[in-house]
Write a protein that binds this DNA or RNA. Structure first.
Lengths: 153, 153
DNA sequence: GATGAAAGAAATCCATT
DNA sequence: AATGGATTTCTTTCATC
């Protein structure tokens, strides 16, 4: 699966920091010439190690001032209950992250909204309308201290 | 601040989905020709609306099988205590996200590690060595149901 | 502000080692 | 697997509307 050598990991490190670095510059940084560097990047893309390239956008500039972590407990934990819940939240753009947690097997969601009233609208028109939810607990973030998508390589 | 018109928001939507889309294709999708589309993208970059471009890497392919959410309470909440804590965690690559939360004014961290023993190493050599921490509570994620960095535009 | 064209730079492919 | 060069494609700038 992941037989990534040292050069692959270097490449991934640089691409996580700058997804638009030129092949020439990237090749220089990892000590290869352009062609083999290019081939490695293409292989990493094909193997699904690099999943995609993204522009990162400032949350405040979009007017999204509210970040909420929501703990959700389901009434039943049968496979089909989980699947139905996961399918629903996956379709909502306000939900940026969702994790199935150990312990009580509940879900942890990170949701963004413009303000408290649009968060309330999200709760009322979407989340609380789902069947099979036993409890919802919202925790609000005062500020985002760190946000990185660069995994340690 | 954010006088983004409909076309700007369309551009941001497409760039969040594909950070390497060509100007030609992007221009077509938003109904402009290449030059004005290019100018808008450059402006969005200069204004800090687009913060950067990133390659997204598969966590499992890197062998990072453990995702943990950590709730941390500080002994004191003076500005300098917060600053010191935030500076420390910002430097650690294992910490991908950190939020200052309302309520008890504690921190919520998302941390990744290869396995439980390397997570333990992170706790022992880094987190628990910080001064002024009153409590640490780890919650493990069984699976990542959704992970998106694309903000709703 | 938008347009189209033109120059420069980068990605991509291929023959060679 | 890596290299250097050739080709194609994109970015970026500029004059014009």
């Amino acid at each position: 699966m992941s037989d990534l050598d040292a050069i692959d990991r270097k490449i991934l490190g640089h691409l996580q920091a700058d997804g638009r670095i030129t092949m020439q510059e990237l090749a220089g940084k990892v000590g290869l010439s352009v062609s083999p560097c290019h081939r490695r990047v293409k292989l990493l893309e094909e193997r699904g190690v690099i999943t995609r390239y993204i522009a990162s956008v400032d949350q405040k500039a979009l007017g999204l001032h509210v970040s909420v972590f929501i703990s959700i407990k389901l009434a039943r934990q049968k496979e089909e209950d989980l699947k139905r819940f996961e399918k629903a939240i996956s379709a909502w753009p306000e939900v940026l992250e969702c994790y199935l947690m150990t312990g009580n097997r509940d879900y942890l969601l990170r949701v963004v909204a413009a303000d408290l009233s649009s968060y309330e609208a999200f709760l009322k028109t979407k989340l609380t309308r789902l069947d099979g939810i036993a409890s919802i607990e919202s925790s609000f973030a005062l500020s985002q201290v760190k946000y990185s998508i660069a995994l340690p390589v």
